[in-house]
């Protein structure tokens, strides 16, 4: 199981690194989908099968495909890809890399001083029971959030007068 975890972690890291450095948005998004599928495997090896199914079905399957459809509606041409390549080629990466490396070093230092703990498989049944008993108010709030997103997207997406 640990070998599968490390292999999936490697796939997730490489795919994410490729996703944020592509010049073509569709290529970048497909790399990100690969990263999400690897993340689903990671969730499964960590004892969270329900989260693994959600990751593949909801995130990679629904949210990312919505993203992909909208990008295809944008109809970016070859000139856009060339312009994008010129943006990436410039040394814009230097300062962000320094800042992110600094933040990463700080956080890694915090994580290295933790103690290992016990683990077990958390079944979908436990998740469902907890979700619809003690966390019911949060479910209602989540539905309100989705409604707000729906109304907002509908309002912004109207044809302008």
């Amino acid at each position: 199981m640990i070998t599968i975890f490390y292999a999936s972690a490697l796939v997730a890291l490489v795919a994410t690194a490729l996703a944020i450095t592509r010049s073509n948005p569709v290529h970048g998004l497909l790399w990100f989908v690969v990263s999400l599928l690897a993340m689903g495997v990671i969730f499964y090896t960590m004892g969270a099968p329900f989260a693994a199914a959600l990751e593949v079905i909801v995130y990679a399957g629904a949210i990312m495909v919505l993203f992909l459809f909208v990008i295809m509606m944008l109809s970016l041409d070859r000139a856009a890809a060339a312009r994008e390549r010129s943006w990436i080629a410039r040394p814009v990466w230097v300062v962000p890399i320094i800042l992110v490396a600094l933040l990463g070093a700080e956080l890694a230092r915090v994580f290295l001083h933790g103690a290992p703990g016990a683990s077990r498989v958390v079944s979908p049944q436990e998740v469902g029971v907890r979700l619809f008993t003690s966390d019911l108010a949060a479910v209602e709030l989540a539905s309100m959030l989705l409604l707000a997103g729906l109304v907002g997207a509908f309002h912004l997406g109207r044809k302008s007068p």
Binding site: P96, G104, F111
Partner: peptide, 22 residues
């Protein structure tokens, strides 16, 4: 548990890097 936690850290920083640089 520190392994997936560290992975989450690195992935978050990759996302942050993309957000800052792109």
């Amino acid at each position: 548990w520190p392994m997936p936690t560290g992975l989450a850290l690195v992935l978050f920083l990759l996302g942050l890097l993309g957000l800052l640089a792109r």
